[in-house]
Design a protein around this nucleic acid. Structure first.
Length: 139
DNA sequence: GCCAACGTTGGC
DNA sequence: GCCAACGTTGGC
């Protein structure tokens, strides 16, 4: 069964525009240096989808990506470090980006990791949450 | 193994 | 730019 995720990136480091330009081949999602985030990355399966969230500058969900390669060692990590990446490609740009403020204002989304674990950079999203956010985003 | 100190993230 | 939240480090 398909799982859903939320991936955070600072636009200054890696923006949605760049993800879109990477096209169908996609890119690896690097920079995760947190064990819980790593665990989430490892749990991703090909075909899973995730929200692309702009942290800091924007604070909104701007698009949807799909996992095209499952976890493998992070090429940007030091030798011997345990970090992993997955490959993702852009699938869809949200017609209406969903802001953090909107998510916080929606009672049904009060339990989203984005609200409860603000600093976790790779988070699981439930199917119910996924559908609600898609609806808010005009998908 | 506990916990204080410190560093980082990210919203405001 | 500030600071709260949280993870990590290191002394004991």
């Amino acid at each position: 069964m398909k799982n859903y995720w939320l991936l955070k990136s600072e636009p200054s480091a890696w923006s949605w525009d760049e993800q879109v330009k990477a096209g169908k081949k996609g890119t690896f999602w690097s920079g995760v240096r947190n064990h819980l985030a790593k665990k989430n990355l490892s749990a991703m399966r090909e075909g899973d989808q995730g929200f692309f969230y702009h942290s800091n500058d924007g604070k909104n969900i701007v698009g949807i990506v799909e996992v095209i390669r499952e976890a493998y060692p992070d090429p940007t990590a030091e030798v011997g470090e345990p970090w992993v990446v997955v490959d993702v490609k852009a699938v869809k740009t949200l017609p209406r980006p969903v802001t953090l403020a909107q998510i916080k204002a929606e009672p049904k989304l009060a339990k989203m990791s984005l609200v409860t674990s603000a600093r976790l950079s790779v988070q699981p999203v439930t199917k119910a949450e996924w559908d609600i956010v898609c609806g808010m985003g005009g998908v």
